[in-house]
Design a binder for these strands. Structure first.
Lengths: 222, 222
DNA sequence: TTCCTATACATAACGGTGTTATAGATAAAA
DNA sequence: TTTTATCTATAACACCGTTATGTATAGGAA
């Protein structure tokens, strides 16, 4: 996305990311735009206070602006939530792709799973937002959903390494979906149903054990 | 729970269930209490409109009462949500236990999984409520969480049939947790991430296939 | 240079939410 | 009969997301 800032420089802004990735072609010293301030404020609030912290007034105040800016730049709270949703999946994608340099496919996939589970803890707010805990009035836009599909595609690529090169895309996707379902299931059950009192490490170990069993089953089947 | 109604009869009320289970020891013709009316109204709204339909005013109106009754009988919206949460897990438990008459353990467990997936569709509102989509300001009370534990216990009992009698409780629980995580993972991913456009049957078939693979892995390991 | 248009912004008000405050009604117990 | 406990209706409160109103600013056109 390319936008023009009030100072006339041509800025390249990567949507959905809150760290400063604004590249000004004309003035390398350009400061944050208000849109970026808002998104950073929202992302920080999500990290510190969870989804409850994300009122329009709180985000605006944290960005040093009034609420109208949320409507101006993001078309309302939905736009902020969409941006955070995309951030969430960008984090997922990053966790999955960060193992690209690992040679052994099984080791890589297991490490990706560990990254994923760690992310679910370290970025709990983003995780819960992505999985619908904003309250059911929020549903991601089509654009935002693309981030989910991108993350899934990254997962499929990673899992494909466990399969023979002849495996069809559908097979890869089915395998990736199963592994994702399993991992996410552990996270979600712990959030809502059972195991909430368990130590992080213990829960992660349990999830990884189960995940490894499924990975090994996949390897044995091919 | 035993309570006295305005008409002086001694009523046995099972909490968390919305169908009339009020048993009046004195007057068999007793009508619903207001508390039951409220819970039924909430449950119906949840079924018809989802979580968004559950405002205090909407529930009160559907029960033919004013909002103060919600605070009187349920101590506020939290109490209603707790009751619905318990209903949700009672439904899960029922889905799992309804296969008790099936002789073959594998067939029984697979049927239980099918029941579970069907429940996730037919009682989507309850399902989403149980898994946190009320908005993050709701967290179930300790009493309500017991319903989740009861459902898990039922699941453990069902899965235990796949294991040798010598299997420890921890082993049974680990197996049950894995299978539940997998099933729920499929439901949740479809709600929030991917596959939302897929036909119910196709998605269920995919989930059951994956589930069956894990069941078979479990059987093969013992 | 001036005027017009588009965008961004501050502030107040609106309609909705869950909840509390106030007052009244009723049944049971003392 | 009086007191107590419980239930109830209604209005008001504080907060929410959003809209309405008016102002400021930058860029483009005449």
């Amino acid at each position: 996305m390319v936008s023009t800032s009030p100072r006339g420089c041509l800025c390249t802004v990567t949507p959905g990311l809150y760290w400063p990735v604004t590249r000004c072609d004309v003035k390398p010293e350009a400061v944050s735009t208000n849109k970026e301030k808002i998104l950073k404020a929202a992302s920080d609030l999500l990290l510190e206070k969870g989804i409850d912290g994300l009122s329009v007034r709180a985000i605006a105040a944290a960005a040093g602006l009034s609420t109208i800016a949320i409507y101006s730049h993001f078309d309302g709270k939905q736009g902020v939530l969409d941006a955070l949703y995309m951030e969430g999946f960008a984090l997922v994608q990053s966790a999955v792709e960060s193992v690209a340099g690992v040679e052994d496919p099984r080791v890589a996939v297991l490490q990706g799973a560990r990254n994923y589970l760690a992310l679910a803890i370290e970025r709990e707010g983003h995780y819960r937002l992505v999985f619908g805990e904003t309250g059911s009035s929020y549903a991601p836009t089509e654009v935002a959903q693309q981030a989910a599909r991108d993350a899934f595609a990254a997962l499929v690529s990673g899992v494909a390494r466990l399969l023979p090169p002849s495996a069809s895309l559908a097979t890869q996707q089915r395998a990736a979906l199963k592994l994702w379902a399993l991992l996410h299931g552990y996270v979600s059950l712990r959030h809502h149903v059972i195991g909430g009192a368990m130590e992080d490490r213990q829960w992660q170990a349990m999830a990884i054990d189960a995940f490894a069993e499924s990975v090994d089953q996949l390897l044995a089947a091919h």
